[in-house]
Amino acid sequence: MKYLLTALLLSLSATPLLACETVQLGSLEISEAWSRASIGMARPGAFYVTIRNTGATDDALAGIATPVSGKPMLHETVVKDGVASMPHAPAIPVPADSTVQLEPGGYHGMLMGLTQVLKEGETFPVTLTFREAGDVTVPVAIRGMGAKDAGCVDKKD
């Protein structure tokens, strides 16, 4: 039954699920790239992704680029003394043999100057630039505004 349901879900939502596929770049595995639907284009969007470094060399995410944002930047949400701020993160370390998540309330890509409305169910490309491994482009699933994760079928429960 569970498999039937999964198969049904897979067949119904083939496009966004592409974003759930893992993209390999050397010893880096990039998966679960997602964003939230936007209201118009005035507000900044956020970009989240999981990066697994299976190799023995430390790496770092140094930047992101995407056609949907005029000024994409890496940021980190920091809650200090109960107050949330979002300092710019020059680079996000991806140490050897570890997994780093850009996720709500932590590191995230900030997509300023949106060039298009982000619509739930659609995808857009983001190019990640790593100091060691170089560039890789991944498809990003646009989820609902209330989403808290990529919603990949094989991840939760």
Binding site: P44, A46, T77, A84, G105, H108, K148
Partner: peptide, 16 residues
């Protein structure tokens, strides 16, 4: 605030 890309949608989603 509604221009907040990370904390606010996450908290509103938590509350929901």
């Amino acid at each position: 605030f509604t221009w907040c890309p990370d904390v606010c949608p996450t908290t509103l989603s938590d509350i929901s």
